[in-house]
Write a protein that binds this DNA or RNA. Structure first.
Lengths: 110, 110
DNA sequence: TGACAATATATCATATCTGACATATTGTTT
DNA sequence: AAACAATATGTCAGATATGATATATTGTCA
């Protein structure tokens, strides 16, 4: 597992679509991280599509603006549970979730 | 939200496929609970399909038999994160996950 | 430029989750 | 029945996530 490493990696830039085979991440770890990032991206998309500010969404969730920012940044301190509950709160259905999960782009790496 | 209520409800029997509109659960709450139960069921299915005991899987995950039992029971103390990581560990892909999520059965209620 | 709104980042006390352990229950084989 | 394997349930200390708060950064408009 080695959570510390993953955290360090996530801290600094990631976003780089397709968190595959960077430094010794097992396939499971990669998939887990990719999944989180996909959920993060979707959350931002949905929020913006509804023209809500992070503060608006935070209020709706009973959370804080800073946590919403972290959610959207894919911060390691954010759980998938929270991301999913937030997406549901923005009206996403399970079907939407499924779509989000499968809609990953294989990166070509620069 | 009211997590306490959900926990109480989850404690005693649930499994009753389709956790919908029982006692004042918001649609989001229902979807979240359903999702968790679907992941729980899938985990058990996959583990059994690979003919592993809970103890085997626990070892593979660096966890304990009791926690695996709780995962499969949809215990409220288990996060979606843990369920997903466990599924990945059993070889599930993101595509599999998506299938699991959408494969919910609408209950007819007795 | 300054003033303002939105977003990002840091820290922290408390809440929640987790692995471990003990023990109970269930299921199978003899 | 006993003996055993697998699963379930309860508890708890330590780990992780959370909302709150403060502050920094970025963007936009006058």
């Amino acid at each position: 597992m080695n959570k510390a490493k993953r955290k360090r990696l996530e801290r600094k830039g990631w976003k780089v679509g397709g968190a595959d085979e960077f430094l010794g991440l097992s396939p499971e770890e990669s998939e887990y991280i990719e999944l989180k990032l996909e959920l993060s991206r979707s959350l931002r998309e949905r929020r913006e599509a509804q023209r809500l500010t992070q503060t608006d969404l935070a209020e709706q969730l009973g959370s804080s603006q800073s946590r919403v920012a972290k959610m959207e940044a894919g911060d390691p301190s954010v759980s998938i549970d929270l991301l999913i509950r937030s997406l549901f709160s923005l009206g996403a259905t399970k079907r939407d979730l499924a779509r989000i999960i499968t809609a990953s782009k294989k990166s070509k790496a620069a």
